[in-house]
Simulated assay, not measured.
Amino acid sequence: MELVFYIIRLGLHLLVVLGLWLMTKPLIETHLRHLGQKIDFRMKLRKSIVGQRVSRIQKKMWLYRHLDDLLYFAQRNYEPGISVMRFAMRSGFLLLAVFLSSLLTLKELPGQLSFENPFLEGISFSGRENVEGAWRLPLFLAVIAASIPYLRMRYVYAQRKVRGSYDLLDVIKIAAKFTHLSVDAVLSRTTDFLTEDNVLKAPLRLLGAAFANYSNEMELNEEAERFTAAIGTTFAVEFVADLLYCEKEGTRYLKSSLLTLNRSMEQQRETIMTVKAGSRDAISLGLYGNLVVLVSSVGTFMFMLKPDVYFKLQFETPVGLAFFMVIIFGLFVSFIISTILARPKLDYH
C-alpha cells in the first residue's frame, strides 16, 4: 500500500511540472516559431547557394532532416522548421519533467525494497537509507518517456503512409478536372476540394506552393521527391513525374495521363480488396489471437499463484524476465506483420 502512495506522489510531481509547462509555453512559443522559421530559411538559402554541394549540409543536419521528413507527413498542422523545433522542445521537456519528478520521488522512498520468500513474506520495505546512484533509474525512465513521442510519430507516419497511397486516388480524380489550368493552380484547386480527413491535403498544398514559387529546378525537384517519398508508391512517382513534365511542356496531355493512372489504381485496388477478403480470418487471428491467449494465460497463473507471487517470479527472476521479453517481442512482431497485411499500400506490388 505504501508503494501505491509513492506512485501517486510521482503523479502529483508530474502534475506540478505540467502546470509549470503550461504557464511558460506561451512565452516560449513566439521565440520558438521565430527560431524555426530562421533555421528553415537559412537551410533553403544555403541550398540555393551551394547547389550540388547540398549533400554536405544534409549530412550535418541529418537529425533535423529526419524529424522534418517524418513530421511532414505525420502532423496535420505541419509548418516547415517550426514543427521540428516544437517537437524537439516537447520531447526535451518531457525528458526533464520525468527525470526530476522520478528523482524527487526516489529520494523520498525507503532505502531499499527487500524481497523475501515470495510464498511466505513477499515484499517489504527496509529502513530509509541514502540511495547510491539515485539518478540512474530516473534517467532510464526519462529516456523511455522521451522516446514515446518519437515512437508515436513513427507509428502515425507508417499509418498515414499507407492511407496516403489510397488517398492519392482521390487526388488524381479531382486533379483531372482542372487540367486546363497551370500545374500550381491544378494542385491548389485540388487541395481545396479534398476533405479534411485526406492525409495528402497538407503535403499537396506545400507541393503546389513549390510549383508556384520555386527559384530553380533543383528546389522544385527536391520538394517533388519529398512528396513521392512520403507516399512511397510507384503511382505517386508517376503522378509527380506527370506534373514535372507538364510544368515544362504544358498541361495538354495531363488529363489523359491522369485518367490512365486513375484506371490503373482502380484495378489494383480491386485486386488488393479481393486478396484481402480471402485472408481476413488469418489477419484477425494474428492481430488479436495472441493477445487473447496472453491475457488468459497470465490471468490463470495470477489466480493460481496469487498476484504477489506471480509478479515476483515473473519480474524478479532471470528466466521470468527472459520469457517476458521474448513474449512481448513476439507480440510486437506479430502485430506489425498483421497490421501491414490488414491494409497493404496501393501499389503495383
Rank of each mutant, 00 (worst) to 15 (best):
P80I: 00
P80F: 00
P80L: 01
P80V: 00
G81C: 02
G81N: 04
G81E: 04
G81D: 01
G81S: 05
G81A: 11
I82Q: 01
I82M: 06
I82S: 05
I82N: 02
S83Y: 10
V84Y: 03
V84K: 02
V84Q: 04
M85A: 07
M85K: 02
M85N: 00
R86D: 05
R86V: 00
F87H: 14
F87G: 15
F87C: 15
A88P: 02
A88K: 10
A88Y: 05
A88W: 07
M89A: 13
M89W: 07
M89C: 11
M89I: 14
R90F: 15
R90V: 14
R90L: 15
S91M: 10
G92D: 06
G92E: 04
G92Y: 05
G92Q: 08
G92S: 09
G92P: 02
F93E: 03
F93H: 09
F93K: 08
F93Y: 13
L94Y: 07
L94M: 15
L94K: 02
L94F: 11
L94R: 00
L94P: 06
L94Q: 06
L95I: 04
L95R: 04
L95N: 09
L95C: 13
L96V: 15
L96N: 10
L96W: 14
L96Y: 13
L96A: 15
L96T: 15
L96K: 12
A97T: 10
A97L: 10
A97Y: 03
V98D: 08
V98Q: 08
V98R: 02
V98S: 04
V98T: 01
F99Q: 07
F99N: 13
F99P: 06
F99Y: 15
F99E: 08
F99K: 03
L100V: 01
L100W: 00
L100S: 02
L100I: 04
L100C: 09
L100R: 00
S101T: 12
S101V: 04
S101W: 06
S102K: 13
S102Y: 10
S102A: 14
S102Q: 11
S102H: 10
S102E: 06
S102I: 10
S102L: 13
S102F: 14
L103F: 01
L103V: 01
L103G: 00
L103T: 01
L103Y: 05
L104W: 13
L104P: 01
T105I: 12
T105Y: 06
T105H: 05
T105A: 12
T105P: 06
L106I: 06
L106C: 03
L106E: 01
K107H: 03
K107V: 05
E108G: 07
E108R: 04
E108P: 00
E108S: 08
L109V: 10
L109Q: 12
L109T: 12
L109N: 10
L109C: 13
P110W: 10
P110V: 13
P110E: 13
G111F: 08
G111L: 02
G111Q: 04
Q112A: 12
Q112P: 09
Q112W: 13
Q112E: 14
Q112M: 15
Q112G: 09
L113N: 07
L113W: 03
L113C: 05
S114Y: 08
S114W: 12
S114Q: 14
S114C: 07
S114L: 13
F115G: 08
F115N: 07
F115L: 09
F115H: 03
F115V: 07
